[in-house]
Amino acid sequence: MSGILFPMNNQLVALLKKDLKIDFRQQFAILGIFLFVATTVFIVFFSFKQINPREFVILYWIIFLFAAQNAILKSFVQESGKRHLYYYTLTDPITVLISKLIYNIILLLLIAFGTYALFQLLAGPEIIDPKLFITAIVLGSLGIGSVFSFLSAIAIKAHNSSVLLTLLSFPIIIPVLMLCIKLSIMSVKLNEAMITPLPFEEYQSDLAMLGGIDVILLAMSLVLFSTIWKN
């Protein structure tokens, strides 16, 4: 692993640049995701009018999950066909995965913060512990991004791959999402009586758990990815 890290850097940057360029050229795809987020958020606010903090957090994560799924399906459709094999001849599979991983995670973080900004603009609840909320978003994007990136490499080989990706990934994502929802509910001002953020001891086990799952998922993707491409 360490041996390939050095020459990998250039290739990694090149691959990331390529993804960025494609997205810049096909702006409709990325704008489409933000349009999706905006529409859902509007529907939520129109129909709920008054939203309580707990429901806000749950809706936030559900909207985020579907937006993330859309975003990754997009990057996944544009890479269909034999293009992956072409990258594979240029560099090694792990570089491809890492570039995809980094790109997808950055994309998910953008979506997460974008959605949050939109919610806040339209009067979401006050976040009392921003550090915890941001940690939840980062760890959530990391876990969800790694699962989607890895499993899309499997699903790409099957029929009906976009449906299959959902089927394969959702049961694995559920625990990550549950922990994210739990943590972000703790970071939000639930009632008027709450003035100070919760003490660290309250959520440290959940945080450790989420981090642990992320590490396992990332490590598994890195270890198993080369076997997907080996023939």
């Binding site: 499997i154 699903a155 080989k157 099957a158 394969l168 694995i172 997907i228």
Partner: peptide, 22 residues
């Protein structure tokens, strides 16, 4: 479902094994 949706036999077995471990 993954097993049933890949035609190529060798890649079906390989991908199914990868998913099973994961």
């Amino acid at each position: 479902i993954l097993r049933s949706s890949i035609d190529d036999d060798a890649s079906k077995k390989r991908l199914a094994s990868v998913y099973n471990i994961y």
